[in-house]
Structure formats: structure tokens, C-alpha cells
Simulated assay, not measured.
Amino acid sequence: MPYVSTPDGAEIFYQDYGQGKPVLLSHGWPLSSEAWAYELKVLADAGYRAIAHDRRGHGRSSRTSGGNDMDTYARDLASLVEQLDLTDLTVVGHSTGGGEVVRYAAQHGKGRVTKVVTVGAVPPVMVKSASNPEGTPIEVFDGIREGVLRDRSQFYQDLSETFFGANREGSTISQGLRDDFWRQGMLAELQAAYDCVAVFSETDFTEDLKALDVPILIAHGDDDQIVPIAAAAYKSIDLVKLGTLKVYPGAPHGISGSYQEELIKDVLAFIAD
């Protein structure tokens, strides 16, 4: 299986399909590159080189005693991009991965990244504060940490409900899709999953968004119960120079079904020359 080594010795697993302009996809918490299986195939079939990695501590990548912070995640991504020598690159990130690609593009991607796509992404910052009253209270994230620590298996099963909007009337989300969320989550090492809660909730990406000098598509479902759109996409679009906002009515946090099909069409249109 393909891996790259980071400067601190972590081994980062990645999937790599197709040929053409590269598109690199970064997954959400607590998932892995498997979350992008559909997109990897569609992008490769459309003539792109589609790549997705497992974040350290997740999936098949190294379980490390440290490095569960956004700066390290972005440096890991830089190691992957540099070792594969990717240029004219589009980076796509969902949820936590959206923060990861924004920080990578802003701080490491100059000369390599030409477009950015975020989907249900955590920037600018999730946690509620005096300066971010639309944010999510810290008590919610404390509850996530407690759930991960005490019984992450049941917690991931329960979380899949709101992640995919299965609690909404008329939902067609399958049990299989929810089971796959649980499966991927259980592959995340406990320490990494626990530490990453602070990473995705408390990291401030405001300056990264301001620093981006390439086009960015900011995609978000307006029924996202995990990363509410008011504190995320609606704020991010005002911080970037070359942004396009696309709101998907009724779409949840998890990417699936008709939302997934519409999103990939929009991504393909955005990244086309």
C-alpha cells in the first residue's frame, strides 16, 4: 500500500487513482480516505488524478504519540504533496478536512495549489465566544470528548444520525451508510480522535482564509447539524478574496445521495479549465 513519510517519522497512507490534473481530498473527523470512495472514482473517470489520504491517527496512517494539531496536519499534507510533486493542484476538504486544506493552501501551497474547495467545513472557527456568538458552545465539544473517551463505539453510532440527518422527517439515509461511518470511526486511534475534537472546534482559520489568493468554492448544506452554516460558510465567504458560496437546501453534514451527486457536479465544473 502507498505511504509517504513525514519529517517526524509518521507514515501517511494515501489512495491514488487516474491521471491528469491532481485533485487531493481531505476527510472529516473521525473518518478516513474511504469517505471519498465515490468522489475518487468519479474524478478519476472524469480524467483527473484523484488522491485521498488518511490523516495521522486515522485509518491506515501512523498512530503517533503527538502531532494531533492543525499545523501538523497541514505539514503532513505538504509532505504528501511534495513527495508526489503535485502542481496545478485542487485541494478539497470536508469538515475538519476543510480546515486542513485551507491552512495547507494558505501556509504551504503557494506555487502548487490553484483552487480550493471546502464542504461543510469548520472555518473560520467553530467554538462560541464573545467574538463568535453564532458558534457552538464549548460544552457541546466537551460532550463529544466524553462520548469518545467512555464509549466511542456507541457514540459513533449515535453521531451518525445527526451527521447524515437521519433524524429528519423523510430521510432516506440507509443503515449501511451509518454503519460505514461507525466502521471508519472505529479505525481512528482513541488519542487522535479525542485530541482532534479541540483541533476542529478551537482552531481559528480567519487569517488563513484571508491569505488565500486562489479561487475557493465554499459548499455547505443549510441543514448541517454538525457544523452550522451560520458560523461557518456564511462567515468564511466574507473573509476570502476569490470565493464562491454554494448552499445546498436541506443538505446535512454528511455527503450522500442527491447531495453528493449535485456536489460532485459542482466541483467538476469549478475545477474545469
Rank of each mutant, 00 (worst) to 15 (best):
G28D: 03
Q107F: 00
Y38D: 15
R55A: 03
V102A: 07
G67P: 08
D45F: 05
I12N: 13
T90K: 08
R63D: 06
D88F: 03
V23C: 02
F13Q: 06
V102I: 15
D88M: 00
K110Q: 15
I12W: 14
W29V: 00
L77N: 06
Y38N: 08
L84D: 13
K41L: 11
K21T: 02
G20F: 00
D54R: 10
W36M: 08
S32A: 13
D69K: 04
A50C: 12
S5C: 10
D16H: 10
A46L: 11
S79A: 15
K21V: 04
D8Y: 04
G66E: 01
A50R: 13
P30K: 05
S95D: 11
K110M: 00
Q15I: 06
T64H: 06
K110A: 15
W36F: 09
A52N: 12
H53C: 09
D85I: 00
I51Y: 01
A46C: 04
F13K: 01
K41G: 02
Y48S: 11
G47A: 09
A50D: 05
Q19N: 15
S32F: 02
G111R: 14
Y14D: 03
K110G: 13
Y14L: 06
G99V: 08
Y38A: 15
E100V: 11
Q15L: 13
V92K: 02
L89G: 09
G20W: 01
Q83N: 08
G9F: 04
D8P: 09
S5R: 15
G28A: 14
G98V: 01
Q83R: 07
Q83P: 12
E11G: 04
Y104A: 11
S79Q: 10
G57C: 05
D88S: 07
V92N: 01
S33C: 10
Q107I: 06
K41Q: 14
G18S: 03
A52Y: 04
D54S: 11
Q15C: 10
I51V: 09
E11K: 13
F13V: 03
